[in-house]
């Protein structure tokens, strides 16, 4: 009993939600937002798609298996910390790119770490929701 209205509506809402979550992630450093909330919004978006049609379409639209996202996210977070070790400073010290990037403003390893958190949150939530839905 897939409702046509919902799936068409989702086709418009879904990109908006993704856009907003990226927006939340990138400006997290200065205004409210950040990796965690962004991740949750994306997870909600994909579960909406899964609710509207079925789990397999959601997984296809996502393209990547959520568990892979967990791994990549953790890797990104760790790498953003390890680079400090390589540079001889204590673990997790932030390193910033000198020039300001026009849209994002200051860019540095904490942003990479935030991106790692973002991916992990998406991976975790969607692993749970998709596994539950697959039954």
């Amino acid at each position: 009993m897939v409702s046509l209205i919902l799936s068409t509506a989702v086709r418009y809402i879904f990109p908006l939600q993704l856009l907003f979550s990226i927006f939340l992630l990138l400006r997290g450093h200065n205004e409210p937002g950040g990796g965690f909330v962004g991740g949750l919004v994306v997870a909600a978006a994909f579960s909406l798609v899964a609710l509207a049609n079925n789990v397999w379409t959601a997984q296809r639209t996502m393209g990547v298996n959520p568990r892979v996202l967990i791994g990549v996210g953790l890797l990104a977070a760790a790498v953003s910390g390890l680079q400090a070790l390589i540079a001889g400073q204590p673990f997790m010290t932030a390193a910033w790119i000198a020039r300001d990037i026009p849209v994002l403003g200051k860019v540095g390893t904490p942003l990479l770490f935030d991106f790692g958190v973002y991916l992990v949150v998406i991976g975790v939530t969607l692993t749970i929701i998709f596994t539950l839905m697959e039954e």
Binding site: I13, P32, G33, V41, A44
Partner: peptide, 13 residues
Amino acid sequence: LDVAIVLALLSFL
């Protein structure tokens, strides 16, 4: 206001 946006996005879910 951003909180309101998030709520608007997710509440209907």
